[in-house]
């Protein structure tokens, strides 16, 4: 009986199928388990910092960098560990830098990808697409270097006037390491990623829909705008979510060009707002990571990390939610 089963090719194929199914299932479960463990671990490690500060954790403090210093030092003294931490400057920096650069690169990427797919001549398209894909994979540290060597000195020497320096000198010193540098380079970094995803999405819009609109006397631009971009919205959302995730998590480049000062840029300062230094969460984690040996510091760092983790979770959910109303009219992702 056993040999019979063994020889039957149908049964063999079935068993191979089942084996593949089991293996893939186990892999998926393993990955899921790992992600879950990661989340639980990070939030557990982060808990002391949240518990000691309460909701004040999210508030604005006097001096972010001194808080970090005190938390770090408290482990070395024979005293109760210090947990006092006000994360607002890094939260605010992250929000501002991410939002601005996502908005800037979304607008740029949308127009570039529409141009590449629909309007660029063939030879230009053949050059542009590989270049864009290459740009999307440039390591961020290289962009950071370019920022430090070119953009930051330019901002420091050309854009910031002495008057502006004097105006805010009582809170922060303007050096060129700034929000503006971070936003510009981050936009440059995530735009190619968006363009690559957008181009794929726009290209897969059925020709029939576009021709249908053209055949009714709608011009090319309006056709592409109203039908093409509309149909490709799931891809636009996917690209934006992907790019936002990369922007939120970017550490090394932002640590290099934003100044690394725990300061919340103040919109009330007008245009100087953009020239003020900032410190987004990932950069803060990067700069504090040498101090992991100190237990209270370690918990504080995990607390910052848990915020990042949480925001990426929210981001995926938001991307999913935005796509829902589109499904109704048959736009598939």
């Amino acid at each position: 009986m056993a040999t019979q089963v063994h020889d039957d090719p149908g049964a063999r194929a079935l068993r191979a199928d089942r084996r593949a199914e089991l293996m893939l299932g186990a892999l998926v479960l393993g990955v899921l388990g790992f992600v879950l463990l990661l989340i639980v671990f990070v939030f557990r490690e982060a808990w002391p910092s949240f518990a000691n500060n309460g909701l004040l954790w999210f508030a604005n403090g006097d001096d972010f960098d001194r808080e970090i210093e005190e938390i770090f030092m408290s482990a070395n003294l024979l005293q109760e560990p210090v947990y006092d931490f006000r994360a607002w400057p890094i939260l605010w920096s992250t929000i501002v830098i991410t939002t601005l650069s996502v908005v800037i690169s979304f607008i740029a990427a949308l127009f570039v990808s529409v141009f590449v797919v629909e309007f660029a001549p063939e030879w230009m398209r053949r050059i542009l697409e590989p270049v864009i894909r290459l740009l999307a994979s440039v390591p961020s540290v290289i962009l950071g270097l370019l920022g430090v060597l070119i953009l930051v000195p330019f901002i420091g020497e050309q854009l910031i006037t002495d008057d502006q320096r004097r105006e805010v000198s009582y809170v922060v010193s303007l050096s060129g390491y700034s929000l503006l540098a971070g936003v510009l380079i981050l936009s440059l970094m995530i735009a190619p990623l968006m363009i690559a995803v957008f181009v794929d999405g726009l290209r897969s819009v059925p020709r029939g829909w576009l021709e249908g609109a053209l055949g009714l006397g709608v011009n090319r631009w309006r056709t592409f705008w109203k039908i093409g971009v509309r149909t490709a919205r799931p891809a636009l959302v996917a690209g934006t979510v992907l790019a936002t995730a990369r922007a939120i998590g970017e550490s090394i480049m932002l640590a290099m060009v934003c100044g690394g000062v725990g300061f919340a840029p103040n919109p009330a300062d007008g245009l100087i707002f953009f020239l003020e230094p900032a410190k987004p969460i990932p950069a803060a984690i990067l700069q504090a990571s040498e101090e992991l040996t100190s237990p209270p510091m370690r918990d504080t760092i995990f607390a910052m990390a848990s915020i990042l983790l949480f925001s990426s979770l929210v981001l995926s959910l938001a991307g999913w939610a935005v796509k829902q109303p589109m499904k109704k009219y048959g736009v598939r992702s």
Partner: peptide, 13 residues
Amino acid sequence: TMVFQQPNPFPMS
């Protein structure tokens, strides 16, 4: 105006 071989209503109402 033109009507095509494949019905191609736009993904709208």
